[in-house]
Amino acid sequence: MRIICFAKQVPDPEVPAASFKIDPATNKAAPVAGVAPVINGFDLNAIEAALRLKEKHSATVTVISLGKNLVQDVIKKPLSMGCDELILLQDDAFEDGDAASIAEALALAVKKAGQFDLILCGRQASDTDRGQVGPAVAELLGLPCVTLAKGVETGEGTVKVERVVADGTEVVEAPLPALVTVSNELGEPRYPTLRGIMTAGRKTPTVWTAADIGADPGKVGAKGRTVSTVKLFIPQVEKNCEFIAGENGADAGRKLALRLREVKLI
């Protein structure tokens, strides 16, 4: 079995709101000094799902990542976790795409990569918070698509997925090949092992340009966008917090209740 995973390098989503700034030149988040980018968390969940299947069914796992300024140590993490192959889509022509134009490039890369059974990707990227690229790739490749997986199991020519829904879960089945987007409920991604890190160090990622995958320059990157960005801004939410103090914690707790009663909140 061959599994393809998508992995995106994103700014660390856990930086405190106070250090979040926008770079007006790029209309993107400005890098925070001393904070390295990471692989999108949900993509690591997808990779974890792939590696669990690999352990069970002896699969190979190929990771595809599209981006600029990729940090080697970061982008190689899937290899050190146990994935077999890494393909990087790097070309100025891929820059500043939206979901449609990123999906176009990823779908072409999947086609070039050859035969596969399953594509696993994150439910959404933590910078765009979008959740569109997975279904868009599925549409371009004509694949059945299952979103928000917390468990993925393959059988004879099928994939069975436990999905997260509003008040519980749902089990669905689809024929392979298929695309599944994975959510954090799948569970913690594994840590790279020392051996994994050594193996990853020896592997050289394959790099493909727009020409390599036969992309129509008008359909990828900024030129292929269907939705344009007008503005990116930081909403102002600062409220003046009234701190309730007391002689000790318990006293403060009692005073908080009294204050809430005063303003009729309880």
Binding site: P13, I22, D127, V227, V230, F233, I234
Partner: peptide, 12 residues
Amino acid sequence: VYGGNAQAIYES
């Protein structure tokens, strides 16, 4: 976007 740290205005 960015987990709510920012908002984007898109146009179609």
